[in-house]
Amino acid sequence: MAQLEQFTTPLDAVVSRMRALGAALPERDGVAVFNRVYLAVTEEVGRQLDAGRFPDPGAAITLDVRFAERYLSAVDAAAGGSRPPACWRPLFQFRRHPGVRPLQFALAGINAHIGHDLALAVVDACRSLGCEPAELEDEFDRVGDLLTTLEERIREDLMPGPDLLQIADPITHLLGAWSLERARDATWAAARALWALRRLPELAEEFTERLDAAVGLAGRMMLTPLPG
């Protein structure tokens, strides 16, 4: 009988799932492009946890696992024929479109995951840990810093053409209006608002739906097919 894989933490299980997903998808698939980006971030979180760089490792693991579960649930929904959250639908709809470039896929996935999933993950983690959002702000900021560093590298690696030609490339104009820093700030505000609304479920649900739709609209624009 095959030996079962052993996981030290729930984060290890998440990393294993992302690796398996990446191995099963074509390299050019839009979800595969984002998955590689997100896997790199999650692996780096694991390394920093091992190095003791998170002041509260338990809180960091809880937040990162709740965060990753939102993405993996969207993948499962799409694979099972269900509708994923609105923020993720553009990526699944256009994942094989030949006119959408890898950089667009990567940033559209980051937009969905940061703009929508992270706010909900903060609330999920607060409920699991019995704490206030302010107590997770250090963990939130550290994960955000990792994503910001990686986003810079992604743009350098996936931006087509030499630097002198980038200003004329349509992708420069299409994606230039989106900022991870602004998305992080908006997400933290959204997480605090959702936490404040936790005893008003109807308002919380409406807020979440509107957030989901707004992030999805931004993602759809980011995935506008471009000429080759």
Rank of each mutant, 00 (worst) to 15 (best):
M1C: 10
E5K: 13
E5H: 07
Q6N: 07
Q6F: 12
F7S: 02
T8V: 07
V14K: 03
V15A: 12
S16E: 06
M18W: 09
M18P: 00
M18E: 03
R19T: 08
R19N: 11
A20Q: 11
G22E: 09
A24Y: 02
A24V: 04
L25T: 02
L25K: 02
E27H: 14
G30K: 02
V31K: 01
V33Q: 12
V37K: 06
L39W: 00
L39P: 00
V41N: 12
T42A: 08
T42W: 01
V45K: 01
V45S: 05
Q48C: 06
A51L: 09
G52H: 06
F54A: 05
P55Q: 10
G58A: 09
A59W: 00
A59T: 08
R66V: 04
F67K: 03
F67I: 03
F67R: 08
E69Y: 04
E69F: 03
R70Q: 14
Y71D: 04
A74E: 07
V75H: 03
D76C: 04
A78V: 06
A78N: 02
G80Q: 08
S82M: 13
P85S: 12
C87P: 05
R89Q: 15
R89H: 06
R89L: 11
R89N: 03
Q93M: 09
P98A: 07
P98V: 08
P98F: 01
V100D: 00
P102M: 13
L103V: 15
L103I: 15
F105G: 01
F105R: 02
F105E: 02
A106L: 11
I110V: 15
H113S: 12
I114A: 12
D117C: 15
A119Y: 04
L120I: 12
V123H: 02
V123R: 01
R127N: 11
S128C: 05
E135N: 03
L136Q: 01
L136H: 00
E137S: 07
D138I: 07
D138T: 14
E139Y: 00
R142W: 00
V143E: 02
V143I: 15
T148R: 10
L150P: 00
R153Q: 14
R153P: 05
R155G: 08
E156R: 12
M159K: 04
M159S: 15
P162I: 11
L165N: 01
D169N: 14
D169P: 01
P170Y: 04
P170M: 09
I171L: 13
T172R: 07
H173S: 13
H173V: 13
L174S: 08
L174C: 10
L175S: 06
G176Q: 05
W178I: 10
E181L: 13
R182H: 15
R184C: 07
D185K: 13
W188P: 03
A189L: 13
A190R: 11
A191V: 05
A193W: 06
A193S: 14
W195T: 02
A196D: 14
R199Q: 15
E205Q: 13
E209P: 02
L211N: 04
D212P: 09
A213Y: 05
A214S: 13
V215H: 06
V215E: 05
G216H: 03
L217E: 14
L217W: 06
L217T: 12
M222N: 06
T224Y: 01
P227F: 05
